[in-house]
Write a protein that binds this DNA or RNA. Structure first.
Lengths: 242, 242
DNA sequence: CGAAGGATTGAGTTCATTCAAGTTGGGTGG
DNA sequence: CCACCCAACTTGAATGAACTCAATCCTTCG
């Protein structure tokens, strides 16, 4: 059994987002400078959890923010009728820990084994007080998340089932590239039920929509968790992204 | 014709949001200190536009951020099929001007006469470099907007038409209290079409949902733009907010 | 006051949901 | 290592909610 610290030592805090300022190409960039990463590492703790671990519960006292560096997590809220609504899937270089009045607004749970930096709120605020660069980086990340959320709301508001799934698959392809993944080969770390909750459909409709996409020759399914994108252009058109 | 400046002189920049830290009650608070307001006023220009004015177009060069101080605006994106999807309605104490890579991500348009501070991006960034308090205030506001957007996505994803309208009406009641408005009396500054786009329904369905709410005795319509909330508790239950 | 756009109502259709029954596949114990 | 088993996934048929199409009513604004 190896030293756990040695295993995770190569990880550094990392936050990716598209900047709001024009900044070369339209790609996403690392928002943390070397020194900001160091500052965060000093105050935070690198944690590793196995799949299906609750990082924190909805309504719990919000004392940490998490920076995912490997694996996938989700946040969800329990509805009045009892079923859960997924508010976000979170990938490496994302932040988790949205709170309101000192309480987390959602439950955060790992879908795969997850490694993350656990950053105490107080320490983060202290760093923010003296590092304007970090503030602006975080503003950038939040704008990024806001755009994504608004886009998601639009997607879910009016598109039919295949369009929602097309949009979802394109997003996963862009956002989640685990090591060794081939281009166009998707690994879905979440269940159909999770996907259904996220895109606002039932499990059955997700299944049928994927079937429809496969019948059109746009994707190929290989078991429930592996999907190959065969025609990205057509997928994009189906998703309404012209 | 009166001096325009004299009319608008009492306005000051203002940003409201629920803080993420526990901070007394669960209410929203002013995030700008007096000195931050002063700093913003120094670099920004107070503008007044009449209704249906485009503040900036989608894709346009993002040089300003706007802080609404009176009136209502909306932001929307034009879809591939041509119709517009509303991403947000914006009220006094809100910020408008979300951009990505130097370009606005949506068109911003006033629904009523709007007064707003137009803040140059460069100047804002300069202030951010030296005022950590402002940064944290903006982070707070963005978290607030992100929560709202995620909540909106959830609302729109799985609720039926009456539930979406109930949720929408409750939000308007909370977010938009023009001077002289009585509690429970709503003035809708947007058309049915705008509402439909926002909640992900057709105009007809919005109409029918409002009719259904009225038939249940939860609201009363007085012309297309005036709605009285008769039973807020029941409305909340319909909206799924227990 | 009249026109034009917005809002409501009605009838028929469509597409996601519900309910129900298979099928698959990953994980566990023998 | 294999076979079993359970949960996840898929497929099918019937229901129902929201959409489309179309006509009428309202109201706002020139």
């Amino acid at each position: 059994m190896k030293d756990e610290l040695a295993d995770v030592a190569p990880y550094r805090p990392s936050i990716y987002a598209a900047p709001f300022r024009k900044d070369g190409d339209g790609m996403e960039v690392e928002l943390l400078s070397r020194s900001e990463q160091d500052a965060l590492m000093e105050v935070s703790q690198l944690i590793s959890v196995r799949r299906h671990t609750v990082l924190y519960p909805e309504g719990g006292e919000a004392r940490f923010v998490y920076n995912v560096v490997s694996g996938v997590a989700q946040t969800y809220q329990l509805q009045a009728n009892g079923d859960k609504r997924i508010t976000a899937f979170l990938f490496p270089r994302d932040l988790i820990g949205l709170s309101e009045n000192g309480a987390y607004v959602a439950t955060a749970q790992s879908l795969t084994p997850v490694t993350a930096f656990r950053i105490p709120f107080d320490a983060l605020q202290a760093i923010l007080e003296r590092d304007p660069g970090l503030d602006i980086g975080l503003l950038c990340k939040l704008c990024h998340e806001l755009r994504r959320s608004q886009h998601h709301a639009i997607t879910v508001a009016r598109n039919d089932a295949p369009a929602r799934l097309a949009s979802f698959l394109l997003w996963i392809e862009h956002a989640y590239a685990p090591p060794g993944r081939l281009a166009g080969e998707l690994i879905l770390p979440m269940t159909r039920h999770d996907i259904a909750d996220y895109v606002g459909l039932t499990v059955e409709s997700v299944s049928r929509a994927l079937h429809a996409l496969e019948a059109q020759g746009v994707i190929r399914r290989k078991g429930p968790r592996f999907i190959t994108l065969l025609d990205t252009a057509k997928l994009r058109k189906l998703a309404g992204q012209v």
